[in-house]
Design a protein around this nucleic acid. Structure first.
Lengths: 198, 198
DNA sequence: AAGATACTGGACGGCGTGTCCAGTATTGGT
DNA sequence: ACCAATACTGGACACGCCGTCCAGTATCTT
């Protein structure tokens, strides 16, 4: 077999396992899903699981990677370096999460907030990049870093809260509030009666 | 024996177990600490453990409760309802966490961000209470809620980042930046060269 | 077709959990 | 100081899940 190509069986099995994980993780806490559960759902032998992934966590990572990849294929015309009234990542993120809520509740780790490090880092990276635009030069790295963390934490918490809710609040609305809070702070965002952004 | 009083042996054992948990959890991930580890560290029979706590998680909760209690005993003159330039909870929180960093790294769940729900809720409550002061009446509950979550997430992420660091940044500094970010937003906080608050 | 490769399913040892119990301290009440 | 009540001990047990291994079978690629 040529080195780069992939056996149909392999692709099939991996896909099945990933699908199974997504399904189960939408039903219950990731931590409560056993390898056996996954295999049963995927209709794959348990020993087969281990020929593909060393453990459950690796399957999760692979699943996330795959998911991210398919996302980036969808939209690449995001970076228009706007005048800076908004983060460009958060809108699409909220919209995407909304489209497949059940899955994201699982992927992002339900009540326990066990967000996979990769996702956290990826989002952090996005935020940092956007914040660099505001910060004056790189002369205060600590300040940039703390702001990055601040926004990252806020973002995930808002996302969690929203996903745990009943889904009545539309993604644009959440994004708008999030952005306002991030840019203007609670002082402005809460005190002023605001009326729907620009 | 009188109904309310507590047998010395019980108090002793529970204290030992809690101390052991704190110590171990400072050394490694909470999830990686086994009941057996705790018992060995505490020098308590494993079966004894289960006569006091149904499982590891309950011990954690009890430990946290105890900790909180001892905290509230320490300082009760906090609520001066200031003019609203700051959250009153965060300063003491950063200061306290700083004083016993190793322990807090454990209690707040190291890299995994597994913050016990009780702590999260407690902090959320503080924040919500303080935010009510800014919000105009209770006519927009969603807005208040989203702001609460926003600040909560930001707070914990900043706290984590800071605890994971080398400890060179003093608590007052972190608190100052946190407050500025929360109240004025990243726009103001990052763009302006600021010089140390009032 | 045939050799390479992947899947199966069952067995194994290991570890951690939570329960139970008979035997042994320690305690608090009188 | 005694003694009944209560707590601690340590070892055994069944359970569930993990990760590994292997001989047998199915499926792919060339």
């Amino acid at each position: 077999m040529a080195a780069g190509s992939i056996d149909r069986r392999v692709a099939r099995t991996r896909s099945r396992l990933q699908q199974a994980l997504l399904k189960l993780t939408a039903e219950k806490e990731y931590g409560a899903v056993t390898v056996e559960d996954i295999c049963r759902e995927a209709d794959v032998g348990r020993s087969t699981f281990y020929t593909h992934y060393p453990d459950k966590e690796c399957l999760r990572k692979a699943t996330i990677d795959e998911h991210m990849k398919s996302l980036q294929a969808g939209g690449a015309e995001r970076h228009s370096m706007r005048d800076f009234e908004s983060f460009s990542f958060s809108g699409p993120a909220f919209a995407h999460a909304y489209a497949t809520r059940e899955m994201h509740r699982g992927l992002m780790g339900g009540a326990k907030r066990e967000i996979p490090q990769e996702i956290r880092d990826w989002v952090s990276g996005q935020i940092r990049r956007e914040l660099v635009g505001i910060a004056d030069g790189g002369k205060d790295r600590v300040r940039l870093e703390i702001a990055t963390r601040f926004v990252t934490g806020a973002f995930f918490e808002v996302m969690h809260w929203w996903l745990d809710g009943d889904g009545r609040l539309p993604p644009q609305e959440v994004d708008r509030m999030f952005q306002k809070l991030a840019f203007d702070g609670v002082g402005t965002a809460l005190a002023a009666r605001d009326d729907g952004g620009s």
